[in-house]
């Protein structure tokens, strides 16, 4: 088995363990590259039919191209798509025009997620986070419990070994299921290339710049890159020393910003 085969097999195993353990679950989907790999793996795990809803937390600061992609993918992958906007926060005037990125990310992503989770009473959420994205994500588990306040108790995580996971939770709590945890950015791209997975065009270079990670348009910046094909992106990643989330402003707002965001429920 190749390295990608091993990663794929483990991700599929995790998907199936989660689906067996949790009767109510959903998969947040950002339309980004990792998210699309996740959808692809779910299709494989369940023989072409994803047996739970896919959730898009729409911050209302989405790139228009991404919304077009959403419509295409929903149809193409036959997704049971739920779109959630934190209307209440938007009505209060929360937005990048008025607030700092930590506050906006928290309100429009994390709180929105809390609202929709409460509404549907999901016990598990499948996320596309990877260890190599951020050093706090590196400390995650495949099955990572969150309390009713969405908090991640990173100081006392349950043990997890020999493919035995946290597969139960108390009412109000939920478990984050993270099938891509062991994948690297390079693995994701090599898998996209191998499987010919369609991804948004924004990842490819236009006028010498491309997006390496995509979030809300006011706080997401492209990086210098001539890479306009998947192969070129892969070659670039093999030599670059710029970190993936360098273009994501909320991560760098203050020291340990990601830890603070994540402890409160951010992915």
């Amino acid at each position: 088995m190749t390295h990608l085969d091993q990663l794929e097999a483990q991700s599929i195993f995790i998907f199936r363990e989660a689906y067996h353990a949790f009767s109510k679950m959903a998969m947040p989907w950002s339309m980004g590259k990792d998210s699309n790999v996740l959808v692809w793996l779910a299709k494989k795990a369940f023989c072409g039919r994803i047996p739970f809803p896919v959730l898009h937390i729409d911050t209302t600061y989405e790139f228009p191209e991404m919304l077009e992609f959403r419509a295409w993918a929903q149809k193409s992958y036959e997704l049971d798509l739920i779109v959630k906007i934190n209307e209440e926060a938007r009505a209060r005037g929360i937005g990048y025009e008025t607030c700092d990125p930590i506050t906006v990310t928290h309100e429009l992503k994390t709180v929105a997620l809390q609202q929709v989770l409460t509404q549907y009473k999901w016990e598990a959420l499948v996320t596309g986070i990877r260890r190599d994205e951020d050093s706090t994500r590196a400390k995650e588990r495949y099955f990572s419990p969150r309390n009713a306040d969405f908090e991640w108790d990173y100081k006392d995580q349950p043990p997890e070994f020999w493919n035995q996971f946290t597969t139960s939770c108390k009412p109000g709590e939920h478990v984050r299921v993270q099938p891509l945890l062991d994948w690297t950015e390079l693995d994701v791209w090599e898998y996209i290339e191998r499987e010919k997975i369609t991804i948004p065009d924004m990842y490819f270079s236009r006028e010498g710049k491309r997006f390496r990670s995509i979030g809300c348009w006011p706080i997401t910046h492209p990086v210098e890159s001539p890479a306009s094909t998947i192969r070129e992106i892969i070659e670039e990643l093999k030599t670059t020393k710029v970190s993936e989330r360098a273009g994501r402003a909320q991560d760098h707002h203050e020291r340990n910003a990601m830890q603070k965001l994540r402890a409160k429920g951010f992915m």
């Binding site: 190599d132 050093s135 400390k139």
Partner: peptide, 22 residues
Amino acid sequence: FLLDALLEEQEQNITIDTTRIQ
């Protein structure tokens, strides 16, 4: 500090949880 990413780990200079890096 490369791996001890959690604030508590850095303050106390210990590793609390396992991590991975390539």
